[in-house]
């Protein structure tokens, strides 16, 4: 059983990830409707959940068209890259004690590596389309994602310092008593913002800002290739939510007194659900910043905050070591 566990889990994530992303498209629109005082898709089936099937059928039966002026191979390769990279990222997520695909001692770096590879999808998609809007979207995404990767990595150094390991299981174990969202509040703040920028979702969806770039890097994409981009985006959203829960909200640990009432996997998935709802709320509530505002926010606000966080965390850790 224990040897088969990673294989079964990998298949579950593969199928569950795709299904989850499909349901999320509907769920997000309904939730946006609630927060923006309108209905959202509510016609098909109970609560409109049939909309998922309708969208899937529509996407599947669309003509799988490659523009004649595009770089054909790169055009087809681009949307697969983001899905593969995001799926690989799930390999190190600890869902519950013993319930993960691999526990490597570089788990956190593996996650960062996979998110950084996902950049290529947007970049190459924009470039291969041979379209000025797509190219502009690709250029923006390159600058945005490379910069926010820096803050994302730096914001996690405090967590690594406190737990003394890159292994995600060790990080979750280190939060048995107190979650890192209290001691690493600055790191959490930066990581959430960098996470939205990395998965290029509203309010930071400048690579595809529709009012100025039509649809940005995926202007020329349609049918299932477009669906792959969307799948990658929703997988990215789920992966970032899983990582926020794992790194800052105690992973599978429940809240102090009532933690043992329910199984660890429930607590993990419940927390991930709450974080996803929070991301949808951000999308509903915050307008999109201008491109230069986004970049100056990164380098003038995020970078100093992460550096202060690292210095203070290091100082406190050394001071506590001296006091003990």
């Amino acid at each position: 059983m224990s040897e088969l566990m990673p294989v079964i889990l990998a298949l579950t994530i593969l199928i569950g990830g795709v299904a989850g992303a499909a349901v999320l498209t509907w769920f997000e629109r309904r939730l946006l409707g609630v927060w923006q005082d309108r209905y959202g898709p509510n016609r098909l089936g109970p609560f409109g959940v049939g909309q998922v099937a309708a969208d899937m059928i529509k996407l599947l039966f669309k003509d799988d068209w490659v523009p004649p002026f595009a770089d054909k191979l790169v055009f087809i390769f681009a949307p697969t890259a983001i899905v593969v990279a995001m799926m690989m990222g799930f390999a190190v997520v600890p869902f519950a004690p013993g319930m993960m695909i691999i526990d490597v001692n570089i788990g956190l770096l593996f996650f960062l590596g996979m998110t950084s590879l996902a950049v290529y999808s947007v970049l190459l998609g924009g470039l291969a389309s041979n379209n000025k809007y797509a190219l502009l979207g690709g250029l923006r995404s390159a600058a945005q994602m490379v910069s926010y990767e820096v803050f994302m990595g730096l914001s996690l150094i405090g967590v690594v310092m406190m737990s003394g390991s890159f292994s995600l299981v060790d990080i979750v174990e280190a939060q048995t008593d107190v979650w890192f969202c209290f001691s690493q509040i600055l790191g959490l703040f930066v990581f959430i913002i960098a996470g939205i920028a990395e998965s290029h979702r509203l309010p930071f969806d400048l690579p595809e800002a529709e009012h100025e770039l039509t649809a940005g890097f995926h202007t020329e994409y349609g049918g299932m290739k477009f669906a792959m981009f969307m799948l990658g985006e929703y997988l990215g959203l789920m992966l970032i939510s899983c990582m926020i829960v794992t790194l800052f909200f105690g992973g599978w640990h429940g809240p102090m007194l009532i933690g043992h009432w329910l199984p660890p996997f429930f607590w993990f998935s419940f927390k991930v659900f709450v974080v996803i709802c929070f991301f949808v709320l951000l999308r509903a509530a915050i307008p999109r910043p201008r491109y230069d505002q986004l970049m100056s926010l990164g380098w003038k606000v995020m970078l100093p905050i992460t550096l202060v966080n690292i210095v203070v965390t290091g100082a406190v850790l050394l001071w506590m070591e001296g006091a003990a």
Binding site: L109, F110, L112, G113, M114, S116, L117, V119, Y120, L123, L124, G126, L127, L135, G138, L139, A142, A143, M145, V146, E149, G153
Partner: peptide, 17 residues
Amino acid sequence: IVIYAGAIMVLFVFVIM
């Protein structure tokens, strides 16, 4: 992966774009 494949090569692609 993080530095060479994920950052430096992205900048290369950026310049070529």
